[in-house]
Design a protein around this nucleic acid. Sequence first.
DNA 1: AGGGTTATTTACCGACTAGTACAAATATCT
DNA 2: AGATATTTGTACTAGTCGGTAAATAACCCT
Lengths: 204, 204
Amino acid sequence: MSAVSSTVNVGRPRAFDIDTALEKALEVFWRKGYDGTSLSDLTEAMGINKPSLYAAFGNKEQLFLKAIELYESRPCSFFLPALEKPTAYQVAEHMLHGAAMNMADQAHPQGCVVVQGALSCSEAAATVKEALLNRRVEGEQKLRARFEQAKLDGDLPASADAETLARYLGTVLQGMAIQANNGATSEQLRQVAEMTLQAFPRAG
Amino acid sequence: MSAVSSTVNVGRPRAFDIDTALEKALEVFWRKGYDGTSLSDLTEAMGINKPSLYAAFGNKEQLFLKAIELYESRPCSFFLPALEKPTAYQVAEHMLHGAAMNMADQAHPQGCVVVQGALSCSEAAATVKEALLNRRVEGEQKLRARFEQAKLDGDLPASADAETLARYLGTVLQGMAIQANNGATSEQLRQVAEMTLQAFPRAG
DNA sequence: AGGGTTATTTACCGACTAGTACAAATATCT
DNA sequence: AGATATTTGTACTAGTCGGTAAATAACCCT
């Protein structure tokens, strides 16, 4: 009895690469949102038939959730790396600059799928809407925890409000996602990042 | 031959109030987005049947556009009144505080329908998506024009970049819409507004 | 009262939705 | 080669989508 029995090479082999198919699905969800994406959109973009999609990913909802996981685990992701910068200011700086670069990048849909994937949506999308909402809130909680650590480290003044700083930064990052959808360029978003940083307390 | 023949009181009278029906439609679109809203959702909320909806509003797309017009013409709307404040700083202040109050108001869906009504959507929603995008961009252009006037008035330094100031403010306002969807309260948004204003140049 | 006009109700349309049953195809294991 | 396991393509389901045809109801005007 193998502990990884599901990886045993038996039966007809899958004719498509499951990771690139998921990439394609992510791109469609990103552009059209959960409600705006049909299974035909997905199968066409992924280059597979519906039974293959259901066998590999469960259903539309599970496929979406897996696509979001892929989105956040990408090498080009900027959020988690920025959190590890040595000072609070540098965290904010790298996060804002990373967002400016990433969200307007023409190599993929503009904005952020966590923001725009299921913002206002049907009841059928309630689960994925909540999943995205939780991700946004958790992101801000991570920022807040990082800024509280910064106060202990002394690179934020003791008077600083970590929660408000995190919410301010989250607000600008989420606003940048809308801006990117509006057609803003990375350079324009970088200017917004600079302005945002002017309100950010430096070492104290 | 009357120039206002359509207002002549002839034929069976409409059994519903067209303005309150449009209010109801707006609320549904606001909560569920264009793609996420079905005609059944609309007719149920509006308390009318489909033929009445089509006779009064055209179709789903035209109903949405009329709902957006209503949204922007509301007495509680904060955008245009804020533009008329005497200085650039006061414009920004009133706009941010108005947004903080309005977007988290529990009397209606949270956020802003112009932001979340059709952000990522199907091809069927392309027209309304573009209409909303144009409204967002036009709002920022109005802000920019107001700030350029402020430079002439001398309540913004000549070195200020009106375009970037407008985009920064637009970014925060749009971000606030997401925050309100995340469950942020008016008080929390007001704190974000205060931080935002710290980066805003005062009289110079 | 009767004609003209408009709104309402009911029932329907074809197209599309997410999801699946089933049989043929393709691999490994014995 | 044959048995077993899995994926594939085709064809289908029941339900919902946006939108409408047609008959009836309710009003004004003469």
